[in-house]
Simulated scan of single mutants.
Amino acid sequence: MDLMELVFVSLGSAVVLYYGGKLLLFSRMLFPKLWFPLSKTFFTSMGEWAVVTGGSEGIGRAYAFALAEKGMNVVIISRTKATLDKVAKEIGDSTGQKVKVIVTDFTKENVFSEMEAQLKDLNIGVLVNNVGILPNVIPSTFLDSAELDQEITNVINCNVKTMAKMCKITLPGMVNRGKGVILNISSGVISIAFPLYTLYAASKVFVEIFSQGLQAEYKDKGIIIQSVAPFGVSTRMAAYQRTNIVTLSPQDFVKRSLQYLRAGDKTHGSVCHIVLGWLLQSAPLQVFYTESRLHHLQEIVKLKTALKVRGVDVKTSGSNNPHV
């Protein structure tokens, strides 16, 4: 075998090993209960309480129910007291667990001192940073908003600052006990740069990078910190799209995503979303970034939103920010 042939054989073997390894790693995602098992007492062993921001509806509500069903008391935080009280009663009646309600608007400044005081004496084992705001329901370019300055402030306060502040509040207790779980809800759209949702997508990039860095810092302390990046979930933010193999109900998504808790510092939360993330990262970006395709995306969302959204005035979507 001459030198050139040896080089090509070695290169081919390396490629086979590399992609074989990736295929093996992916195959684990098909059987999360086998590869990433959790004991029945896993969550209650983390602590007595779970805290869920944006816990009044959608994914946050589903996490609150799921964690209560696993035996944890739950703190749900959002801005609408009537909705929070209703959800708290539903959780308490169906699970028998304690539910504490905290009313706050995370788009506002200086809301964390009072919240920290209310959480101070709780043994918090799980934090779910779910609250988020989508500044534009209908896809639009960055400068299209008539209230852009306010939207920038709202997105940074709600999607970025809140997550970091909630980690600051709850992480010290977890470090002291040597255990805990923090789930930061990101978005599948950040698999690539996402035009027309630029501000929202950029805020979710922060969520992912912050989570991965924090996990590297505190993994040896016995704490699991994971960013969860779903694609389609039928919530108000997604105009309650009909569920299918890609668009999951909040309950189904949360049930599946919790099975990947030990799968690493990032998960898309379900097999179909994992595959979708891989496809997006593998496809040429030019496919998504043509002006005609972006315009087509706008028209599709306008149509679906007009048909599906409940109680949202789609004619004024620029000032109508889904916030959960």
Rank of each mutant, 00 (worst) to 15 (best):
M1D: 12
D2Y: 05
V16L: 07
Y18D: 14
Y19A: 14
Y19R: 13
G20S: 03
L24Q: 11
S27W: 12
S27D: 14
R28K: 10
M29L: 15
F36D: 01
L38T: 01
T41D: 12
T41M: 10
T44W: 07
M46Q: 14
G47T: 01
E48F: 02
W49G: 01
V52K: 09
G54W: 07
S56A: 03
E57C: 06
I59C: 08
A64Q: 03
F65Q: 07
A68F: 08
E69C: 13
K70G: 07
M72T: 08
I76D: 06
I77N: 06
R79M: 11
R79V: 03
L84P: 01
D85F: 00
K86A: 10
A88P: 00
S94D: 06
V111H: 04
S113G: 12
Q118L: 07
D121K: 15
V128A: 04
N130Y: 04
P135K: 05
V137M: 14
L143W: 13
S145C: 04
A146I: 08
E147G: 01
D149K: 09
I152T: 02
I152F: 02
N159R: 07
V160K: 02
M166H: 05
C167A: 11
G173L: 05
N176H: 14
K179Y: 00
G180Y: 00
L183P: 02
S187M: 01
I190N: 05
S191C: 08
F194Q: 10
L196E: 13
L199R: 08
Y200K: 05
A202M: 09
V205R: 13
V207R: 00
S211Y: 00
Y218N: 02
K219V: 07
K219T: 14
D220P: 05
G222R: 07
G222C: 01
I223E: 03
I225A: 03
P230S: 05
F231V: 04
F231T: 01
S234A: 09
S234Y: 07
R236K: 14
A238G: 09
Q241S: 13
V246A: 14
Y260K: 02
L261N: 00
R262Y: 12
D265H: 11
S270K: 00
V271K: 08
V271R: 03
G277R: 00
L285N: 12
Y289D: 15
T290Q: 06
H296I: 11
L297C: 08
Q298A: 12
L303Y: 14
A306V: 06
K308G: 13
V314N: 03
K315N: 15
N320D: 14
